[in-house]
Simulated scan of single mutants.
Amino acid sequence: MQKIAKKLVEIMKEVSYIEKKGRNSFHNYSYATSADVLEKINQALVKHNLCSIVLTELLRMDEVTTAKGSIEHLVTVKVDVMLVDGDSGETVSFIGLGSGQDSGDKAIMKAQTAGIKYAYMMSFAIATGDDPEADSGTDESNVIHEENKGKSAKNKATTNNVVANEYLCKKCKDELTEKVYKYSLSKHGVPLCMKCQKLNNGSNVA
């Protein structure tokens, strides 16, 4: 494995970064296309006299209903990639998984393309500038969401306290129903529970 390992290191140096030239306008993000990845990998493999042998295994095929109500095929495959050194005969293998969805007969091809692309990208540590931790939009959204939750809870608590304090007996501080509260205000001028109203014998309480 020593000879092929040296070649793989050289290939990793040559394909360390691939620019994201593809654009998904629907979801608004850029990506490295399979064509760009495979073109750069193929050039490096040929340069160092390595050939690739790819075997695909179908893992799963399901029918899914889209938001528009149409039926599409969702396929998941396992891709086994073996590299053979044309000089030493040494080999190395790695695996990739891919999924593809299509209403016609291209679901398997999409899955295979994705599997091969990411098998090479992960095995050769190819960078495209993607970093899940750098998703500032999601982080900002989460912060705003938490702040709004805090403000909402605070406003709700304040509102509840106002209501609670408003419907309390002035003397014993027992809670009052809205009906008793209104009756006491009209009869005594202050909020009193029924017990305190009887104890005061109908007299006004300042």
Rank of each mutant, 00 (worst) to 15 (best):
E57K: 15
E57I: 14
L58D: 00
L58P: 00
L58R: 06
L58C: 05
L58A: 06
L58W: 02
L59E: 13
L59G: 07
L59F: 09
L59W: 06
R60M: 11
R60H: 10
M61V: 11
M61W: 02
D62F: 04
D62R: 10
D62L: 11
T65H: 09
T65R: 11
T66V: 07
T66L: 06
A67P: 08
A67F: 05
A67V: 08
K68E: 06
K68T: 02
K68D: 01
I71E: 10
I71L: 11
L74D: 10
L74E: 14
V77R: 02
V77W: 05
V77D: 01
K78D: 01
V79P: 03
D80E: 11
V81F: 01
L83G: 03
L83Y: 06
L83K: 00
V84A: 04
V84I: 06
D85G: 02
G86V: 08
D87H: 01
D87E: 15
S88Y: 07
G89P: 00
E90M: 07
T91C: 11
V92W: 06
S93H: 07
S93W: 07
F94G: 08
G96T: 04
G96F: 02
G96H: 04
L97R: 03
S99N: 10
S99E: 12
S99P: 00
S99Q: 10
D102Q: 05
S103E: 06
K106W: 05
K106G: 00
K106A: 08
I108D: 01
M109E: 15
K110F: 04
K110M: 05
K110W: 01
K110C: 03
K110P: 06
A111F: 03
A111C: 00
A111M: 01
Q112G: 07
T113W: 00
A114S: 13
A114C: 11
A114N: 15
A114W: 01
A114F: 04
G115H: 01
G115E: 03
G115D: 04
I116R: 05
K117H: 10
Y118I: 12
A119L: 01
Y120E: 02
Y120T: 00
Y120M: 08
M121I: 15
M121L: 14
M122S: 14
F124T: 02
F124G: 03
F124K: 01
A125E: 11
I126E: 03
I126V: 14
T128A: 05
T128I: 02
G129I: 03
G129P: 00
D131A: 14
D131H: 13
P132R: 14
P132M: 11
P132C: 08
P132L: 10
E133W: 09
E133G: 10
A134K: 15
A134R: 13
D135M: 12
D135I: 10
S136F: 12
G137P: 01
G137Y: 10
D139V: 14
D139Y: 11
D139P: 00
E140R: 13
S141F: 09
S141G: 13
S141E: 13
V143Y: 09
V143A: 09
H145I: 14
H145S: 15
E146F: 08
E147F: 06
E147W: 06
N148D: 10
N148S: 12
N148C: 10
K149W: 10
G150C: 00
K151G: 06
K151M: 02
S152N: 11
S152I: 07
